[in-house]
Write a protein that binds this DNA or RNA. Structure first.
Length: 394
RNA sequence: GGGUCGGUGCCCGAGCGGCCAAUGGGAUCUGGCUGUAAACCAGACGGCUUUGCCUACGGGGGUUCAAAUCCCUCCCGGCCCA
């Protein structure tokens, strides 16, 4: 199990041991392990961060185990605060059901559609009674919750902690009970929630699940964790060119971090790859292209990856115009400022003027910075380093 | 319920009668440098019919020549105590 990590070695050993036993039992009884992970539908897209656990699920799947993806339609209405030192906006049931559907679909970029159960935890959690909830809650102490770093921090800062937040771990924990899970995967900060599940399972007379946690993926800016709301993500279903471009814009250091987490490369290959880059035997840019190509081919196939790479090299390295330039019809003559708004290059005329004065606009390969310029004929407009627009008469 | 602090631009936050479309940081955009990197440097960052005007500092009302800043009121929230 390369890539899994825990807060302390003791726990890691215990979990390793537990997993080994489970696998042995499973082999004896010829019963596949029930393995699951959950994602709250807090944003419409799954991204490379999710791919870490998804790929691990896929491995289990390929070994014949029973894989379930839980979409946290109910848990999202609480909002998990495990990864942050503040509250989180709660989702309404309407928002979550919409996202739930697309999550299921996006999972299949990695998982085998035929063999995967995609379920929504609202289906069973919403049926719990208050009596049930009290029963669940009685398995934990307030101190156990307050001992968590992020709660502690908030108390020290006199920042609010919602009472409902405590239910998050309970509900996620009950998912494990409901599924009778053998193994639960998650990012490192999920350890508390996963162990809460294991504890509840024991309370319900089930063997506690094995927790497997994985490092958090930093986003494209290389600092904060990848997330949709921070806008630093690479979506699993994004267009090949977008994926390729975003991966190439990542810093060398971030690329190195990503290698072991998001690729399908064997561990030894990753080590070797890193070593080559560090020794200067492999140029970081070439390395990054290989990474980008690999990832795009995972989600869109090799051919799309080839095309994305070619498109990238053409537009960014050779300065050529891409094939898929957006074309807009206008009526000539039209002031350049208005034209920039019409083609969507700027949100307002003021913004368009700013782009012009900043020297960002090229019309037919000529830089134009006068805001009284006028477009009289079909033109190719380049805005900034990578946005192209074609204007034709209507 | 009592006390107390607060609600400012995408986010965080400073301002506490005029010099405020509002300091600073983050995010974002643009330019420079580069390997389309990152880091770094520079600029921009409400809108418009752009030497000016309009809209904005929780909502409404008021004082004033002038209010994000003072007063009244309403709404919303934090913390502490009960």
């Amino acid at each position: 199990m390369h890539g899994s990590e825990f807060g302390d070695d003791q726990l890691k050993r215990a979990m390793g041991e537990r997993l080994r036993k489970r696998l042995e039992q499973a082999a004896e009884k010829q019963r596949p392990l029930r393995v699951y992970t959950g994602y709250d539908p807090s944003a419409p897209d799954l991204h490379l961060g999710h791919s870490i656990t998804l790929r691990k699920l896929r491995q289990f799947q390929d070994l014949g185990h029973d894989v379930t993806v839980v979409v946290g339609t109910m848990t999202a209405t609480i909002g998990d605060t495990s990864d942050r030192a503040s509250g989180r906006p709660r989702k309404t049931p309407t928002e979550t059901t919409a996202a739930a559907q697309s999550y299921g679909e996006q999972c299949f970029t990695i998982l085998d559609r035929e063999k995967t159960h995609v379920v929504a935890n609202g289906d069973w959690l919403s049926g719990l009674t208050l009596t049930d909830a009290l029963e669940l809650a009685s398995n934990f102490t307030v101190q156990q919750f307050l001992a968590r770093d992020n709660y502690r921090l908030r108390i020290d800062r006199s920042e609010p902690i919602g009472l409902h937040e405590f239910f998050y771990a309970l509900l996620q924990g009950f998912d494990a009970v409901h599924l009778e899970a053998d193994v639960q995967l998650g990012a490192t900060e999920q350890l508390f929630n996963i162990l809460a599940g294991a504890k509840l399972q024991e309370a319900f007379g089930q063997p506690p699940c094995v927790a497997l946690t994985f490092p958090i993926l930093v986003g494209t800016n290389g600092v904060e964790r990848m997330s949709k709301s921070r806008g630093n993500y690479v979506g699993l279903t994004e267009a090949p060119n977008e994926q390729f471009g975003k991966i190439m814009s990542v810093s060398d250091e971030t690329m190195i971090q990503w290698l072991g987490l998001v690729t399908n490369w064997p561990h030894d290959d990753v080590v070797a790859f890193r070593y080559q880059v560090e020794r200067g035997e492999l140029h970081p840019m070439v390395a990054k292209k290989q990474l980008a190509h690999h990832l795009v081919s995972l989600y869109h196939g090799v051919r799309a990856a080839d095309e994305a790479q070619a498109a990238f090299e053409n537009t960014h390295q050779r300065g050529l115009v891409p094939d898929d330039v957006v074309q807009t019809s206008i009526t000539f003559p039209l002031g350049l400022v208005d034209a920039l708004v019409a083609i969507g290059a700027a949100n307002s005329k003021s913004a368009a003027r700013r782009l012009l004065s900043g020297g960002a606009v090229m019309v037919n390969d000529v830089k134009v910075d006068a805001d009284d310029a006028v477009i009289n004929s079909p033109s190719l407009i380049k805005v900034g380093p990578r946005r192209f627009f074609r204007i034709v008469g209507s």
